[in-house]
Design a protein around this nucleic acid. Structure first.
Lengths: 331, 331
DNA sequence: TCACTTGCCATACATATGCAAGGTATGTCA
DNA sequence: TGACATACCTTGCATATGTATGGCAAGTGA
C-alpha cells in the first residue's frame, strides 16, 4: 500500500449524513465544509445507505392499499393484512415486503408486549433486517425456529436470528442443527440432546413468529439448495406439494404431504406454530400465491405482509379456487 | 373554483413516498407508475417533508463531535453534552439542535423511564417536534411548564405541549395562563385557582424537563414580543440580566436579577427545575453562550444539546471567563 | 357566446447527483 | 534514481431533481 487510506470511518460518514440529511445541505456544500471532494461525499452517502446507517421512515405507511388490505382480511379471514405498493415493471418481491415487515415490526415492538419471538429464514427476512432502524430491546429474545442448510449464507438460519437480534438490540438463541436430518441418524436420539431440548422448549412460549414460505420451483432457495438428496422437486409435486412453510411441504389445503420428511425436519412443528398468539407471514410474488393461501387455510397466519401485486392475485385465487369460508365473509 | 382539485391526500403522498424512498424509484418512474406528472410527484415529496411524513434517522448520530462533547462535559461539569454539526456559512441555530434533541428524545423515551416530562416553548422546541418521528407512548404525559404570550404562534406554550404530545402519541396538560401576570392582579389569588394548583402540583413529579434559553436582544422572541409593558430590554440589562430561562432573567452567575418580576411570572420556579432528575437544555447560537453558561452554573442543566459552533464558543467562554469549577476538571 | 378564473399539463432549463476515465501525488522496490 | 502501484483527485458527462413559464381545458358568469 502506498499512502495511507483516507478516513472513511463511521464518524466521517455520520457527519456527512448529518449535514446532508439533517441540515439539508447539498453534497457539494458538504464537501466544501468538510474539505473533501464531492465524490467522497457521494460515496459516503451511498456507503451509509449500504451499511444501514440512515433509515427513512414513512408515517402511517399502510394507508395506500387500504381497500386491498380490507378485502384480503375479509376474503381470507385473517386479522390483519399489510400491502406494500410495488413497481410492476421492475418487480422485486423481497424489498417492498421487507420494508413493510420492518415497519410493522418496529410498530409492534414499540408496545413492549413481546418477550420472545421466533424467526425462520430467507431472503424476505434478510431484506427486513437491512431496512430496520437500530433499536434497543434488551429484554427481547429472538429465537431461531428452523435448522439451517449446509450452504451457509447471510439469510440462513444463523444469520437471520443474529441479524434481527443485532439490529433490535436483543438477545438470540440459535437452532444449531441442519434443517433436514440425514437418513442414518435416529431422530429421537438426535432431538434428545440437551441443547436442542432446551431450545425446543422455547417454542411453546413464543409471543410471535415471523414466517415465510416458498413454492416448489427453482425460485425456492430451499428447493434448489437445501433438499435432502432423496427428495426431488418432481417427487414433491407428485405428492401434491405446492410449497413449504418452515421446510414442511403442504398441499393446497395446507395439509402436510410428506409426514416422513416432516419427522426428519428440524424446526418448530406447524402444530406449535398454530398455537402462537401472533403469526406473521411475510411473502410476495406470483409464485407464492398458492402456498400463502394454503398456509392461511392451515391457520398459520394472523398477519400477512405482502405487496399489491400478490394481494390482487390472492384475491383472484381466493374467489376462483374456493367459495368464501363460512363465517369469514362478515365485515 | 373551476374543476375539482386533484387528489392530494395523505394517501397519495404516502404512496409516492413509498415508491420513492422505500422502493428506490426515481420521481419520473413513480410518476409513470401512478399516472401523474413528474411535477406532482416532486411536489408530493416536498409536501411529505413539510408535513413531517417522512423522517430520516441516522444511527449513532453523536459520534462526530465526540471531543467537543467530552470537553464540554469536563469544563462545565455537566453529565452529557450533545453537539450537532452545522454549516457555518449558512448558519441556522434552530434546525440542527432541533434534530439533535429529537434524536436524543427518541432514544431516551425508548427506555420507558419517563412517565411525565415538562416542556417550555420556543422555536428550538418547535423545530424538534417537526423532526420527531411519530411514536406511541400512551402512558406519557407532556406538561407545559410556562405560561404563554398573547401573540399566539405555533411555538407558543399551547402549540409546543400539544405538538409534542401529538407526535409522541402522549397526553398533555396545558398551563392556561399568560407568562407574565398583569400588574393589577393578585398573584396568590390567581395561583389559587384550582386548575392552576392542580397543574403546578405536577411540576414536583416530573421525570425530565426540556428547557430553552435566550439572551436580552431582539433575537429573543420573549424580549421582542412577550415582555410586560413596564419591562424594557434596557431595564433588564441595567439590572445585570444576560438572558432568561423559563421567562426568568438571570445574571452571569445564574442568579435571578428581578425577584419582583419572577413573582409575577407564571411557570415552573427555577428551584423546582433544579430538583428534576433530568434537565435537558436545547440551545445554540453565539448570542446564547453567556446565558447557557449561566444556566449551567445555576444547576439547571444535566444534558446540553447544542451545535459545534456554540460548543466551541462555550469552551472559549468557559476558559476565559471563569477558572474551572473546583472538582469539575476531573476526567 | 365570450371573457375570465382555476387547476393542471408540457416544456424548458438551472442545479444536483451518480459515475466513469484519465491524471497526479506519494509511497515502494529494484 | 526511476519504474511502478496505490489512493485519491479532477474533469466531464449522463441522469435526476427543482422550479419557472406559457398554454390549455373545464367550468363560471356577464
Amino acid at each position: 500500500m502506498a499512502r495511507e487510506q483516507i478516513e472513511d470511518s463511521v464518524t466521517f460518514i455520520t457527519e456527512v449524513c448529518w449535514h446532508y440529511y439533517m441540515n439539508g445541505n447539498t453534497q457539494a456544500e458538504v464537501a466544501r465544509m468538510m474539505g473533501v471532494t464531492r465524490l467522497r461525499v457521494n460515496q459516503a452517502i451511498q456507503k451509509a445507505k449500504a451499511l444501514g446507517l440512515v433509515h427513512v421512515q414513512i408515517d402511517s405507511p399502510f394507508t395506500t392499499r387500504m381497500e386491498l388490505q380490507q378485502e384480503l382480511q375479509k376474503v381470507y379471514g385473517i386479522e390483519k393484512a399489510l400491502v406494500a405498493p410495488v413497481d410492476r415493471d421492475n418487480y422485486d418481491f423481497h424489498g417492498p415486503v421487507g420494508s413493510g415487515l420492518a415497519n410493522y415490526l418496529t410498530e409492534r415492538l414499540r408496545s413492549g408486549e413481546w418477550k420472545t419471538f421466533g424467526v425462520s429464514w430467507g431472503l424476505t427476512l434478510d431484506s427486513a433486517i437491512r431496512r430496520l432502524q437500530r433499536q434497543s430491546h434488551p429484554q427481547l429474545e429472538v429465537v431461531s425456529i428452523l435448522g439451517g442448510t449446509p450452504h451457509g449464507s447471510s439469510f440462513n438460519s444463523f444469520g437471520i436470528a443474529s441479524g434481527f437480534a443485532d439490529v433490535l438490540g436483543a438477545n438470540y438463541s440459535i437452532l444449531t442443527a441442519p434443517i433436514y436430518l440425514s437418513e442414518g441418524i435416529d431422530r429421537d436420539l438426535f432431538l434428545s440432546q440437551d441443547v436442542l431440548r432446551t431450545h425446543f422448549d422455547k417454542f411453546d412460549r413464543l409471543d410471535a413468529v415471523l414466517l415465510t414460505c416458498s413454492n416448489v420451483s427453482s425460485k425456492s432457495f430451499l428447493v434448489s439448495n437445501g433438499l435432502p438428496a432423496s427428495l426431488t422437486p418432481r417427487k414433491l409435486k407428485e405428492a401434491g406439494a405446492i410449497g413449504d412453510v418452515l421446510g414442511r411441504f403442504l398441499d393446497s389445503d395446507g395439509k402436510s404431504v410428506l409426514p416422513y420428511v416432516d419427522d426428519h425436519t428440524i424446526g418448530m412443528p406447524l402444530e406449535a406454530v398454530e398455537a402462537v398468539p401472533e403469526k406473521i407471514m411475510a411473502a410476495a410474488g406470483p409464485h407464492k400465491v398458492e402456498i400463502i393461501a394454503a398456509a392461511i387455510k392451515r391457520g398459520l397466519v394472523n398477519t400477512l405482509v405482502t405487496d399489491d401485486l400478490t394481494a390482487e392475485l390472492l384475491l383472484e385465487h381466493g374467489k376462483s379456487a374456493t367459495p368464501p369460508l363460512p363465517g369469514s365473509t362478515e365485515a
